[in-house]
Design a protein around this nucleic acid. Structure first.
Lengths: 214, 214
DNA sequence: CAAAAACCTGACCAACTGGTCTGGTTTTTG
DNA sequence: CAAAAACCAGACCAGTTGGTCAGGTTTTTG
């Protein structure tokens, strides 16, 4: 019983799969799907190329497995927000979440961005539907906030787009940011950028920034 | 004289070059550099593949020529803003400019984004330097505004990143937006998105939205 | 402890694709 | 109007790359 519940799987297969996924994330983020060479993933994972194809049926299979893992990162605390919650609190936390993902998983973010830019050719309609439903329910909550007078009038779509865009930017465009700042952003700079972004967006829609995010 | 000045060049070569660049922009935006097939560009341009290689030495050459044209889109009215100008006016116009590019040249925006996400492997150090200098001079102007009390204290870098991110998002992530909205954004929706964005950002940094952008 | 399952890997290949070559035709020019 | 320049395009090729195969070894299991 303890075995079936504990997630830790240290079998050879599980370890190698993880190694491969980690290596693939780096490679796909830098070179895109077509530009990525299975051999390079193998080199990075320190395994022979044939093993990559052994664990994942094909390059496509590997990419899809990776993409699925990446999509799970879209879940957040905002998913369960209700009309009775405080918009300032919820939105600030959501922005902080998104920024944290940009900091910790920049390559995952890049792969997602590449996928969307290319017209989302590999995103299943299942994900699209799920995403669409999520959006509709979140838009509904934001509208309720507006009706309740907790939030000034603003188009919920554009608000969400803005949050996604500006937080993901720190991952996707890290090369540009590094170039312009003269160095890579460290953890404390990310903290500042997060504060700055929370202030800009909350103030931008007429909310007061909660003191813990100041 | 009139000949050397007039830009219109309707020679066969000029027409074909233009056809090829237009076709290439679409293909590279959808498939990325590696994923794009010269044959597909040829099909789209309705020319034999060999002609593509005739006009542009190589796939690389074509891509570089296209990229150079795209980079020129980064120029805007903000380039010449001075400390004595009104920040609200200047920033609103800049955001409007950027949104207009996202609407009219989404593929160009995507190619730029792909380039940056992949670590900017093809951006010459000349462009990087130029871009860096531009950034420094714009940051200086924003700092002057803050010193003059025309603009509340805000990190100029994060302000600019936010403008870029949120305006480019409408081009780069158009597939996601179309999916979530249920339809492609038309011109009037772009106008609304622009107003919404201007309000969010200006209000976010404590400025009043000029009446012509309301 | 044997047999089954999982894992490993070098050798190989078929398909694809950027690019060349050659021999044209059309357009421009002096 | 001739010759040079520009343009056109089919045939072809060499390098690359995802993927297969066959024959192993190691680990797990009953």
């Amino acid at each position: 019983m303890s075995d079936s519940l504990s997630k830790k799987d240290d079998s050879i297969g599980a370890i190698n799969r993880a190694k491969i996924l980690t290596a693939a994330e780096k490679e796909f983020a830098i070179h895109g799907f077509k530009g990525t060479r299975v051999q390079k993933i193998a080199d990075r994972a320190e395994l022979p190329k044939t093993n990559i194809l052994y664990y994942f049926k094909s390059k496509d299979g590997l990419y899809l497995a990776l993409l699925q893992e990446i999509l799970s990162l879209w879940n957040s605390s905002f998913d369960n927000a209700k009309a009775q919650d405080d918009p300032a609190q919820v939105l600030a936390a959501y922005i902080a979440d998104k920024m944290e993902i940009s900091r910790c998983r920049p390559d995952a973010s890049k792969i997602f961005a590449l996928e969307i830019i290319n017209g989302a050719p590999n995103l299943s309609s299942f994900f699209k539907d799920q995403h669409s439903n999520w959006m509709n329910s979140r838009v509904a909550v934001i509208r309720q906030w507006i009706e309740l007078g907790k939030l000034p009038d603003i188009d919920p779509h554009y608000l969400l787009f803005n949050i996604w865009a500006s937080s993901q930017h720190y991952a996707d465009f890290s090369a540009q940011i590094t170039e312009l700042k003269g160095h890579e952003m460290d953890q404390s700079e990310f903290a500042n950028a997060t504060k700055s972004l929370i202030k800009l967006i909350l103030q931008g829609c007429g909310l007061t920034v909660p003191h813990e995010y100041k």
